[in-house]
Design a protein around this nucleic acid. Structure first.
Lengths: 341, 341
DNA sequence: CTGAAAGCGCTAACAA
DNA sequence: TTGTTAGCGCTTTCAG
């Protein structure tokens, strides 16, 4: 059943039916009702391909994941973020396009996205230090929102992020309060923006206690289990080993735990580990309190928020994200870009 | 730059240009070269929206993730699978659509996919026991490939899977060989097909040793860290506790390790844990040998394979996946569906 | 308030 | 080997 057929059944022109269905004000209320009823009866579904061609909009948002950051997908944060964004898209009739692009092809990928018109906007995942994608997207005129931030970029852009710095500062302080004095950091690669911020939080906490950061206590590696394993092993084998570790991701943390095991040490006695993004790190005395990082529901809200912002930009009816930010304590959204209140 | 403009520059009809660019045989070689050259010079990119409307194809494949299975995304296997599939899509000019759909809306979601024509085919993730999606997709006539299998479904369908049964059988045997006699299974929810197969592998190994499965040694829960934690705690607190655990996912395994820690036990002495999908479970004496499960590269190959099969179905030029299967030892692909050799 | 007509940018018969 | 002519199913002026 397409528009023309439906119109014929109703003895109306396709134009009127289209207008009725799309909520144009000039349609007679009775007519509109009749149209709506018929659309329901015949289970009319507009053909998206035709809409896209006619309007010139793609009705789709791209989520671009650099292959190098593929591991990002494995992050629970990513799943929740995507789920949140997906909600907003489907509510608004948009599709979500996932592209995993090889790092060396990234620029071309964005240019094609633009010239072929497959998406109306993009969510940028895994921002890096001085991320070149941001000026590129600005230049191309593709609306975008960054999941995270890109230190060093001076182009204005919209972003949604969690407070990585504070999370690691708090985690470090927490360990200090427990009596630890030598704390190792097992971090992701420090060209990733979040990793930089996490390190800063860790160092801030050290500084507050008047402790100078020790290079041997800080590892920056790819976020894999193997890297976490090797990092922990190395640190724990030092003449003056750490008594606690902070791991920057679930998967690195798993590796670190495994290293402790292989070294014949005992968790909690010989060494303690705090894992960022670890669900159980939220719990204190059995209560589900977020201690160090964003909760699952707030990450999901971040996804909704980012999608919301982006659709606003795409459709030209922008709103300030400010009120959302109040709701989700751990999420710092913001924009120096095109937002109006 | 669109087709018409390009044609005008070349003093040719849009038809000829289209044919030249799309490799139709009837075009003069010289003309084709001239066209290709011009397309390059003017950086001509065909408008996907127009192609889609004109051909009636969506040029897109949907990956549908039930919200209940959202956690699937967090699985490293998912990331690799997606990355593999994505390769094939982009090589063939297809887009990858990700839809995370609420469980109660799933049927409607598929019907819409069909009637709005947003995708040409679908990859079904997280198949369940007697999965109703399979007959539905067959009924709707949407080409699909299942990532995994659905026990109990008698409609024929194409699928790509890893050998979950064998993986868990081997893991269990491995623990037996190490001297363990009481082994706990921390499994995902057993309406998920993979969880059923894993349990079967575990039970097969027990049976081979003449050991009857003990219900107290088998937990089936949502694949979260909290569930893994609680399951391990409960089992380890039993009067006759297990000396080893097999966890069905990284995230459950992390929870289990945490439980061991909280109970003041020592990994490797008081209890051993094998985690499925755990990168380090591949390593034996430092050598990178897959022991229990699929390797990252074979999962990626599975994604490629599934995408390949699906595109074949979609485009009507089907080929048998048999040869791929030889390459990737741990992947069992197959189809009782529309494949010809 | 409703309709006629043109057009979005491509593809695919059918002619030449 | 190339061109002419209709569409694909919708939206969007412009008239009425």
């Amino acid at each position: 059943m397409n528009l023309k057929e439906l119109a014929r059944k109703l003895d109306l022109s396709p134009t009127t039916v289209s207008r009725a269905l799309n909520g144009y004000p000039e349609v007679n209320a009775a007519t509109r009702e009749r149209v709506a009823e018929a659309a329901r009866r015949y289970n009319y579904q507009p053909n998206t391909r035709a809409i896209r061609l006619a309007t010139g909009r793609a009705m789709a948002i791209g989520h671009v994941i650099p292959l190098a950051t593929r591991h990002e997908i494995v992050n629970p944060v990513f799943a929740d973020f995507i789920a949140g964004a997906g909600e907003i898209y489907s509510r608004n009739g948009y599709d979500m396009l996932l592209s995993v692009v090889p790092d060396d092809t990234e620029e071309r990928a964005y240019r094609e996205l633009k010239s072929r018109g497959t998406v109306d906007g993009v969510i940028v995942h895994g921002p890096r230090l001085n991320d070149e994608r941001i000026p590129l997207l600005v230049e191309l005129g593709i609306p975008f929102v960054v999941h995270g931030r890109a230190t060093g970029t001076e182009s204005p852009y919209a972003w949604v992020d969690v407070n990585n710095r504070r999370a690691f500062q708090r985690a470090t302080e927490f360990l200090f309060d427990l009596g630890h004095r030598r704390i190792g950091l097992i971090n992701g690669l420090e060209f990733m923006d979040f990793a930089i911020r996490r390190r800063r939080g860790y160092e801030d906490a050290l500084a507050a206690r008047g402790i100078a950061p020790d290079p041997e206590m800080m590892v920056s590696e790819e976020m894999t289990e193997g890297a976490g394993y090797r990092a922990a092993r190395r640190m724990l084998a030092l003449p003056h080993p750490p008594t606690a570790l902070i791991a920057s991701s679930m998967i690195m943390g798993l590796g670190a735990r495994r290293a402790v095991e292989d070294l014949g040490m005992k968790m909690g006695r010989d060494v303690s580990i705090i894992i960022h993004d670890d669900e159980l790190s939220y719990m204190r005395n059995g209560e589900d309190v977020p201690i160090f990082t964003a909760t699952r529901s707030s990450v999901r809200e971040a996804g909704r928020l980012a999608a919301d912002m982006l659709l606003g930009m795409v459709q030209g009816k922008l709103t300030s994200p400010a009120e959302h930010l109040m709701e989700a304590e751990l999420i710092i959204g913001g924009s120096t870009g095109p937002y109006r209140s």
